[in-house]
């Protein structure tokens, strides 16, 4: 393994931002290759944790380096400045790095960062982006695949995560890393990580899915735990459950739980008086995949998303 500099940026008052990639060179020049981009945002931990755990795994758990067949580049974080002060986006101008691709070397700071990252990861046969949801919810980990015309759903199944969310491309997605990486010929996928800021017993699920993916694409040779057969989900398969009342939100069913129609899955309390002002009822049989993550919920906010049993 060798560390390579992706970019270095000086700052008026902070230490320079040095972003490095960890390159594991494969033993088989014919094998496919993969680049993995970890934390682009600073308020969640799983993209960083999963990428860094994979580095440790490749370094220390694969005893025979010949079992790494294809080149693997892992960039665990490109936004240390945000992570270190719990900012979500680029700390100075609050721009979202994942809306700056393919980048521009003569542009604004985050466009330049995106360009340097894109130059480093271009040309890999496979690409993985570790993201979190844009809204105020947390979720089961899933693969996000745009209907871009370049997607490869069969390849996305190799992560072995339960869900692949196959979704329409919005105008703002055309400046995302996934779309541009695909446009440049890489089989790129996004894994949407739960938005937790703490780690727990389920935190290795994404790391395990990365190992599955590398294994199934013959980038590494490593016997590993079995994976799920992924279900491809579109917006028609998802029931959105909103709360008509704002207040204190108490989910009574966890993400990943199978629920039945008419079951109470959460409640909203009057935030000043404590009484229950709304009971959230499951409108269908299915699995809770997403839940609002803040204790104070807004009116008409999406409290839960349920994938309907079919």
């Amino acid at each position: 393994m060798k560390k390579i500099e992706i970019f270095k940026l000086t700052s008026l008052n902070r230490e320079p931002l040095l972003v490095e990639g960890y390159l594991f060179e494969g033993s088989d020049p014919e094998a496919p290759s993969v680049a993995i981009v970890g934390a682009m945002e600073g308020k969640t931990i799983l993209p960083l944790y999963s990428a860094s755990k994979l580095i440790d795994f490749l370094k220390n758990s694969i005893s025979d380096s010949k079992k790494i067949l294809g080149n693997i580049l892992i960039i665990p974080s490109i936004n240390h400045y945000a992570l270190n002060i719990n900012e979500r986006f680029w700390p100075l101008d609050k721009t979202n790095l994942n809306m700056m691709f393919p980048g521009y070397d003569k542009g604004e700071t985050t466009q330049r960062i995106a360009k340097k990252v894109f130059d480093a990861i271009e040309g890999y046969t496979h690409g993985i982006i570790l993201e979190t949801r844009e809204d105020l919810s947390t979720c089961m980990p899933y693969v996000k695949e745009f209907k871009s015309g370049f997607e490869d759903l069969e390849d996305a199944k190799k992560f072995g995560l339960k869900i692949i969310h196959y979704k329409a491309l919005r105008p703002t997605d055309t400046v995302s890393l996934q779309y541009n990486w695909q446009l440049w010929g890489t089989k790129a996928h996004s894994i949407v990580c739960p938005g937790e800021t703490e780690l727990n017993e389920n935190s290795d699920e994404i790391f395990e899915s990365l190992v599955n993916y590398l294994n199934k694409n013959n980038i590494i040779k490593h016997k590993f735990l079995s994976a799920y057969e992924s279900a491809i989900i579109t917006s028609e398969d998802i029931e959105i459950i909103k709360t008509p009342k704002s207040g204190i939100f108490i989910p009574t069913k966890k993400i990943g739980t199978q629920v039945i129609e008419d079951e109470i899955i959460g409640k909203v309390l009057h935030s000043l008086e404590g009484k229950v002002i709304h009971k959230i009822i499951a409108p269908c049989n299915g699995v809770i995949t997403c839940s609002y993550k803040n204790a104070l919920i807004l009116e008409n906010a999406v409290a839960f998303r349920i994938i309907k049993n079919s």
């Binding site: 986006f89 609050k94 959105i240 909103k242 803040n294 807004l298 008409n300």
Partner: peptide, 26 residues
């Protein structure tokens, strides 16, 4: 705050929005 507080989204990047969307989209 330039964006919509809580969600940290630029309102001028979520048009046309929709009734079923998150609060900034609504």
């Amino acid at each position: 705050t330039r964006g919509f507080p809580l969600y940290e989204v630029d309102l001028n990047r979520v048009f046309p929005g929709g009734e079923d969307e998150f609060l900034p989209g609504q």
